[in-house]
Nucleic acid binder design. Structure first.
Length: 818
DNA sequence: AACTGTGGCCGTGGCC
DNA sequence: GGCCACGGCCAC
């Protein structure tokens, strides 16, 4: 056997079972040759922890260990045995505990063994029995995803396999580039025929320049690969993909759509989706409503999933459809073809080249999006030690959990278990906990606003006050911390001697982020900058999600008291800043959670810096108030219902004249484009003192609506159908529009975007609502009274323009009357 | 459908 | 006409 060294990048991992032994398979791209290699590791076995009761004597513990070692259970599937038991010392909470690491032969025996041992009286509990085997491997072997790793391997002649002897990560090497890998995106166009979804076009685009569309219609498209039938389309796809030999397969919603169709059609025709160069098939899992298409060594990245769960908060477009996302992120637009266009073209066999073109374009966009998100995806994968396959499908909760588990292993800490269903119900029954403070603004236009906010408020609080499950009301600080580290609104305090696990790992994140930000400042190389920026961004989103994770009922680190303490300190600090600002003679205009808006007679940096220093000198730990910037104007509108100014809705003008709009209809995707644009324009004009122009602009819009000169597209209202149609109590417009569409034979799922128009026909607004595709006209009155007037009058009133100020008419009229 | 959290606004339907 | 629950989306 000759020993060898391989340096490469890990981007996939799974395991197989051979002869009752698990064999981990690590998919590695050799950095030099760019060839992929499957490395096998037979040295790793599944395990979980048994926690014996603390009161057990050494002898009792020894007997328990023996009992577990000798455990044997026979049933029809064979004999269940323990491979080995090792005594270890691990940290649980802040305590060192004796635990038994119970090693099993194969992964699926872990839950079985645990179930059998549950009846043993000497056992207090079980830990880490639900961490998937391949994830366990990545963590325990310190795999650094998307970073150079060094493997000592040996070649086994008999099987031709490479076996791993040792692994070393090169922690200082940068994360790799997109261009290291081969990427392939595909997209399907389908039609509904006799109750089945059938494939009519399939496009394939890859990073080596391949651009193909496959169809079985002969005169479809001059560049098309024309095959016999639908079955051949799928076979041809497999053939091309296999030949192109990509590392990653990219789709946009492939988990729920493309692979769903492919799986069904392939089954019908008796074909396997064997696209991988190493002979693996795609498997399609559905766990409840969640579906995934996966193939070892051919990593399927569903970009829609990543956009939905991770990027949604930063996306502004009305829907998360490919064309919108591509437009927003890439500045590219999808060709505009609707489903009815496709089926019409297919039925009449006209304009087929347009569909083919559109199909290819979708793959092109998907590939481009893949490149766009790669830095973020790879940084996150690396940070939380999860395969890119899992990272692109993960929620924030999953990411935080994965990161915590990884860090726990590093620190020899055993992680708490996931809550049982009953426990989760109990946690949820506690109800919502008190959150942040929001300052009620006064209505009007304010000048010269200095904006301050706390840098990462909640993470800073958790670190500074050592907020954790294990540090709460400790015995060691009973006398001191009770005074010095007490939660403002509650009766508990946190330990000041021993750092909790969560504060300590959060601190690592914050420090690392500061370090990366420093490097960013010194970096010129744009490629490198993008990577570093993605890394600091990954750290930021994981850090910010920790507080929510502690208050999340499904969390391993749930603690109600920790969550309420965090927000309690938050309220305390923002109130403190507000009080001190008042004392220093500033006028407090507004503030939300971690920010304060202070107005000054004029811009005065000396005063601003003095205030900042004054505050920061009195703040403990890593708490840090930052100066965000100066704004020449700030507009706060009257609340529609109730007294005072509306919170979470304002507009600011920065020193360069840019307008920043928060909360108003302009930024809400459930308002018509016309209403949003009109409000934006009015804001723009009023903030530059062009009152008359603003009035005229609105009159003009109203006039256009009255004379039906506004194109219907600008009047479409987008709303999400959040649940299945039957579970709605109230018949809101979008729900009624859907009901009417269902009557026409359309189908809807929860989570779908509904685009509707309020038409002229009907009594109530819901009566009038029709899906955009069925609407031929619109109700001008509705759009004037319910979309335009309310959104602009808030703004006019805020700057002090009374509605009744039109004098060009004999009668005194509302400026917007018509 | 959406499983990181709470605070908040506002339109609409539906009840009184 | 007034009030409130439902429902969706946004700020942080």
């Amino acid at each position: 056997m000759n020993s060898d060294e391989i340096s490469g990048i890990v981007f996939d991992c799974d395991y197989i079972v051979e002869g009752n032994k698990p064999l981990v398979r690590v998919f590695v791209k050799d950095a030099k040759t760019k060839q992929n290699i499957v490395l096998h590791d037979s040295s790793f076995c599944p395990y979980f922890y048994v926690v014996p009761y603390l009161y057990l004597t050494d002898e009792q513990a020894f007997l328990l260990k023996k009992k577990i070692e000798l455990f044997e259970h026979d049933d029809i599937s064979g004999t269940l045995k323990v491979k080995s038991v090792k005594e270890e010392e691990k940290t649980m909470g802040l305590q060192k505990r004796r635990v038994f690491r119970v090693e099993c032969f194969i992964p699926k025996e872990v839950p079985l063994l645990k179930a059998h041992l549950e009846k043993e009286e000497e056992i207090e509990g079980f830990r880490e029995y639900d961490i998937l085997f391949y994830k366990r491997y990545l963590i325990d072997r310190n795999i650094e995803l998307f970073r150079q790793m060094h493997f000592k391997v040996h070649h086994e002649k008999k099987t031709g396999r490479f076996f791993v002897d040792s692994i070393k990560a090169d922690k200082n090497s940068p994360l790799v580039d997109f261009s290291l890998f081969r990427w392939l995106a595909f997209d399907l166009e389908t039609i509904e025929e006799s109750g089945k979804t059938k494939i009519i076009f399939a496009s394939i685009v890859d990073s080596s320049g391949c651009k193909t569309v496959i169809t079985c219609y002969r005169n479809g498209y001059e560049h098309a690969v024309v095959v016999e039938d639908e079955k051949s389309i799928i076979e041809k796809m497999g053939e091309i993909i296999k030949k192109q030999n990509p590392d990653f397969i990219l789709t946009y919603n492939g988990d729920n759509f493309d692979f769903n169709v492919l799986e069904d059609r392939a089954k019908t025709f008796g074909i396997k989706l064997q696209w991988s160069s190493i002979g693996e098939n795609f498997t399609y899992f559905s766990k409840g409503a969640r579906k995934k298409a996966q193939c070892f060594g051919l990593v399927h990245i569903d970009i829609y999933k990543f956009v939905f769960s991770i990027m949604r908060g930063t996306i502004k477009s009305e829907t998360l459809k490919l064309n919108n996302i591509a437009k927003e992120l890439l500045g590219d637009e999808k060709k505009d073809v609707s489903y009815s266009d496709i089926s019409h073209a297919w039925r009449t066999k006209t304009n087929l080249s347009k569909i083919a073109d559109y199909c290819v374009h979708d793959s092109v966009l998907t590939l481009k999006l893949g490149e766009h998100i790669f830095a973020n995806l790879s940084s996150l994968s690396n940070l939380v030690c999860q395969l890119p396959f899992d990272t692109c499908r993960a929620s924030y909760g999953t990411l935080v959990e994965a990161f915590a588990i990884r860090k726990a292993h590093e620190k020899n800490i055993i992680v708490p278990n996931k809550p049982s269903n009953e426990e989760m119900v109990k946690r949820k029954q506690k109800g919502m906990f008190k959150g942040a403070f929001v300052y009620s603004p006064k209505v009007g236009l304010k000048k010269n606003i200095a904006l301050f906010d706390f840098r990462s408020l909640y993470p800073s609080i958790i670190i500074t006050h050592n907020i954790d499950i294990d540090t709460i009301n400790c015995k060691c600080c009973l006398k001191t911390a009770k005074k010095k580290n007490k939660v403002p609104d509650y009766d508990f305090y946190f330990c000041q001697k021993q750092k909790g696990f969560i504060p300590s790992i959060l601190e690592e994140i914050i420090f690392l982020r500061v370090k990366i930000k420093k490097i960013i400042k010194e970096t010129r190389d744009t490629k490198m900058l993008k990577k570093l920026d993605a890394q600091q961004y990954a750290l930021k989103i994981v850090a910010n999600a920790f507080y929510g994770y502690m208050g999340f009922a499904g969390s391993r680190f749930y603690d109600y008291r920790a969550a309420v303490s965090t927000t309690s300190f938050g309220r305390h600090y923002i109130h403190k800043v507000i009080e001190e600002a008042k004392e220093e003679g500033f006028r407090v205009v507004y503030g939300d959670t971690d920010s304060v808006f202070l107005s000054l007679p004029k811009k005065n940096m000396k005063k601003i810096n003095k205030f900042l220093d004054h505050i920061n000198n009195s703040l403990p730990g890593i708490m840090d108030l930052e100066y965000e910037g100066f704004f020449t104007k700030g507009l706060f509108a009257q609340k529609k219902h109730g007294e005072g100014g509306a919170k979470k809705r304002y507009a600011l003008v920065d020193e360069n004249g840019n307008i920043i709009i928060k909360g108003f209809e302009k930024v809400r995707r459930d308002w018509s484009v016309l209403a949003r644009q009109t409000q934006e324009k009015v804001l723009e004009l009023l903030l530059s003192d062009k009152t008359e122009e603003a009035k005229n602009y609105v009159r003009d819009v109203i006039d256009k609506l009255k004379t039906k000169k506004v194109p219907i597209e600008e009047l479409v209202i987008n709303t999400n159908l959040k649940k299945s149609i039957s579970s709605y109590e109230q018949m809101a417009p979008h729900v009624m529009a859907v009901k009417k569409a269902i009557a026409r034979g359309m189908k809807f799922k929860g989570g779908q975007n509904i685009a509707y128009v309020v038409t002229a026909k009907g009594k109530s607004i819901s009566d009038k609502a029709q899906l955009a595709e069925f609407a031929n006209d619109y109700d001008s009155q509705y759009y004037i009274n319910n979309q335009i007037i309310p959104v602009v009058s808030r703004i006019f009133e805020a700057v002090g323009v009374q509605e009744l100020s039109l004098t060009d008419n004999s009668k005194q009229k509302n400026i917007f009357e018509y």
